[in-house]
Amino acid sequence: MATVTTQQAGQSAGANPGPRRQPKTGRFSSSVFKKATMAVTGIIFVLYLIAHMVGNLKAFAGAETFNNYSEFLRELGEPILPRLTVLTIIRVVLLVAIATHIWAAVSLWRQAKRARPIGYVTKKRVQQSYASRTMRWGGIILFLFIVWHILDLTLGAVNPAGRDSLPYGRLVEGFQNPVVVIWYAVALIVLGFHIRHGVWSATQSLGHSNKRRERALNVFATAFAVVLIGGYLLIPFSVLFGIID
């Protein structure tokens, strides 16, 4: 017996319309996979940032130590490996990571836009934190900051000390300008928020959070972000107030 309806043979009224889009089961299209790559790349950034902060603090040891440290980075691995090898590897890893991180961020952002084509007239927050809400715009600020920061301190292109200066010189010259310090401070605070939510979020995205750990994780994430950002903020302000010169 066929499935006849008198009005439209075969096609029945009220039947579920079926999936609007065919689900893609490839791993790269899974939102969860995207989140996991963000977490992994985010962790790479965090590790880098820890090391970078420790390196930066050498500024307190004076110009020579700091410049030597910069040179050390470039010579790392010599004589077994040619000069700049390790640094280049680090740079490549970071570049790939940031590209992946941005790809995933943009892709999820677009998915989220599709998911709420019409907004609410009234919408209140019940529990979401400021940090979690600012991940996307914060990320963009961070990206701009990184570009500028490299032009500033690595290449010296936008630094008052100029292209041919040594790192320590660029650092001190740059941070003597309060505007630059404020810009750094803003970016670092944005970074603090990004990391605050990022650390908790990455644990969750990689499936290692649970009810018991949830609180501890959040406390840790906040503490970690504060210490890290505090560490970074020391340098610009020390320069500004003449502790480092």
């Binding site: 017996m1 309806t5 009005q7 439209q8 009224a13 009220g14």
Partner: peptide
């Protein structure tokens, strides 16, 4: 005979 509650359409479905 059924009525689709969303569209109001009335249709008949047959079976064994």
């Amino acid at each position: 005979v059924v009525r689709d509650l969303v569209t109001g359409e009335v249709t008949t479905h047959l079976a064994d």
